[in-house]
Simulated scan of single mutants.
Amino acid sequence: MINFNIIQDFRDQVNANSHYTWYAYQNKNGKNYWNIICACMDWIDVGLECMDGFSFDRKKLGARGLEVFTYISAIDIVWESIQQLHRAIINENEVPFSGEKEVFINDVLHKDDNAYFKHIRAVFGAHPVNLSKDKNNDKWFASWPTTGIHEKYDVALYLYNVDPSKDDIIFGFKFAELNEFFTKRYNHLSYLAKKLEEQYQDYKSSLILNKIRPTTNIEDQLDILEEELNKRLSNDYFEHLVDQIKRIYKATVTNENNRETIEDYRGKVKRVVEELTIKIQNVDYTDLEMDHIVYSNHPQEIHYELSKLFECLYGHRKDEAYDYYIERVSKFLNPYVQIDKTMSADEIFLLLHVGLYNYWDSV
């Protein structure tokens, strides 16, 4: 039974922490390790899906020899992918479990587990009649796989030497050992996920020590926060919130009847900026407690018109019904702000936020 949670947990870690892994690995020492990480995760999924549900029938080995090879190849795909992940995340010159001889106890070739597995893959289907020469420069060829030629193995074959004076070798494996080899290496993903989290925490600690420059000018503060977000981890929610607030402060007030209400609202938005500054300083990209001041729900009565109006104000589309949307929304929000279709897009944008906040504050 394949534990798919291990690869899913690794994927979750890769995508966690405001996509730190993408930020750190999309250009590391001039190489795009992010692409490597994505490719490896995808191929691990392919290998696991192939392995899941595999069963072995001794009576049909001749006919199903390639199915055994497919199972071995699926393990190899997963293992190769994990090696690449290890190189990308830990050390590009290091292969995990090198030198270990803990799994294949009947190792007639005196190889470590990694090398023994590669030999299993080669002789059981990858290139059984074109095997590499051994350390003694001997050339070997594999027979077809069978059962019962040696009790130490579930599946075995003969390795024939091209030198007629040399004896054949019985070579094989047990499925229990093969699965142990796979499990140990597959579980290495949990270690790699832990290392990604440690790397993120180290990076986060370094950012926290880098204090954000304070200023009493709210618009300057927003520019500073925008710069800090570019230096730190990208976060769509925080970046959009900063853009929204900058536009709220950017607008020029043309109707003096709205000024007092606007200034009161902007004073509340300033508290959002203060919370934003603290969170960015601490690299805490969880939602703000006070973002409701900027992000208001749309009242049901004008939900459609508001949605269309905001699309126009964001510049996503032009709409011939723009004046109609303004008329409907301004009438609904008239107890709180006065909106006129001749106002600039920035001023209408501001007044919508002011009006919506005061509407919900009054109900």
Rank of each mutant, 00 (worst) to 15 (best):
A115E: 12
V103M: 10
Y116K: 04
V95T: 11
H127Y: 01
G125K: 01
L109D: 11
D113T: 05
A88R: 01
Y116R: 10
F124L: 05
Q83S: 14
F104L: 15
I89P: 01
S81Q: 02
L131D: 12
I105V: 14
H119S: 15
H127N: 11
E80D: 08
A115W: 10
K118S: 14
S81R: 03
L109F: 14
V129A: 15
Y116H: 08
K111A: 09
R121N: 08
F117T: 08
F117Y: 09
D113F: 02
D112C: 02
A126I: 10
E80M: 06
E94L: 05
Q84K: 15
F97V: 03
L85A: 01
N91D: 13
L131H: 13
E92A: 08
N93C: 05
D107I: 12
N114W: 09
F104I: 06
A88D: 00
V103G: 01
K118I: 06
V108F: 09
K101C: 13
A126G: 07
D107N: 13
S98W: 08
V108M: 14
Q84V: 04
S98L: 14
D113L: 08
V95N: 03
H127Q: 08
R121A: 05
I120S: 03
K111D: 02
H86I: 03
E100I: 07
K111M: 03
N130D: 09
F104A: 13
